Amino acid sequence: MISIDHVSKSFGTAASHTLALDDVSLEVGRGEIYGVVGQSGAGKSTLIRTVNLLERPDSGRITVDGRELTSLGAKDLRIARQGIGMIFQHFNLLSSRTVQGNVELALEVVGVDGKERRSRAGEILELVGLSDKANAYPAQLSGGQKQRIGIARSLATRPSVLLSDEATSALDPETTRSILDLLKTINRELGLTVLLITHEMDVVKAICDSAALIEGGRIAEQGKLVELISKPGSRLAHELFPLGEVPAGTTGTVIDITFSGGLADRPVIAQLAREYAIDVSILGATIETIAGSQAGRTRLELPGSPETIAAAIADLRRQGLLVETVTPTTTAGAAA
């Protein structure tokens, strides 16, 4: 649905420039919710703005719903953009217009007549739960309500793709959850493909099917979350299930066990204690619902001989569990 093919983008002059995107490639499937996560300055905002060519890349191709946008002229690009909605971090509402007027604005721009504009705006306001605020002004709304209006406006032209530029970063946790629930509803009911950028892993956990980690303008890792969870050494997976530092004073072998799907309810600790006579210590654990299924990570300290520990780890791996050894100086672990 969205193909970003070897895209690079720099800012500045030839003598002094910043490379914001460096040979970036991504594929977002139809109907997916795809998250791009990274720190400030990593290139997230530049990346999402290249998808609708608000930032034209220096090189590479952008294809959305089968149309290569980077090859289009100005007129055809304006038409193609009608199929791409965009939600902004700071809402970008017109204070002089009512809620209804702000939603209708997107339709005015593309020449939709007044009766149809009013009808469509009413439909979308009902979808986002703000029909009763149609005649209110932005100053009378909460932050979450303003973002719902921003979402409604982005849906007015019936896009097939929705871009979200840090849409929840200015909101409190409870409001963030409600906006993410709304995005999931829109994705499910309208069949929209959603590409969002964020610096918050909680957003990725909550709604994404796939994700990419961007650093210094390059994609460091990407894939479907259910596959990344079982990938040894995956940085995204470790960020999804943070367990922190290994406590000082540990003397046994420390392992992280990652499980997902049908493996989540295995009595792993009881089995280790029973079959290998190991006094297992639990150093940390986390469990989440990722892409619709339970997954998590448990950190254990295993005392005993190297032979016993090796046999126990081999047994866990035969059960399909991802097992990584951890040292006191690392937090992410290393595949062993």
Rank of each mutant, 00 (worst) to 15 (best):
A167T: 00
T168Q: 01
V203R: 00
A152L: 12
Y137W: 10
L195P: 01
I149K: 03
S169V: 07
A156N: 04
V203A: 05
G223N: 13
P138E: 15
A206Q: 14
G144K: 05
Y137V: 04
I149M: 05
Y137H: 14
A152G: 10
R153S: 10
L162G: 03
I149A: 10
T176G: 04
D165M: 10
G150M: 01
Q140V: 03
Q147H: 09
E189K: 12
A152H: 07
L180Y: 05
S210Y: 01
L192G: 00
E166H: 07
K146N: 13
E215L: 09
L192F: 00
R188L: 12
A206G: 04
Q140P: 04
H199Q: 12
T168S: 14
D202P: 04
S142L: 09
M201L: 14
Y137M: 02
V203N: 07
L180D: 07
G223L: 02
A206K: 15
V161F: 01
S178Y: 02
A139E: 11
K205D: 14
L163T: 12
D165R: 09
A206C: 03
A170T: 12
A167W: 00
E189S: 15
K184T: 07
K133I: 04
I214S: 10
T198R: 02
Q222G: 12
E221F: 02
K224F: 06
V194T: 13
A152N: 13
I179L: 09
R218P: 03
S154P: 02
M201Q: 07
R153V: 11
K205H: 15
Q140D: 14
Q145C: 09
L155W: 03
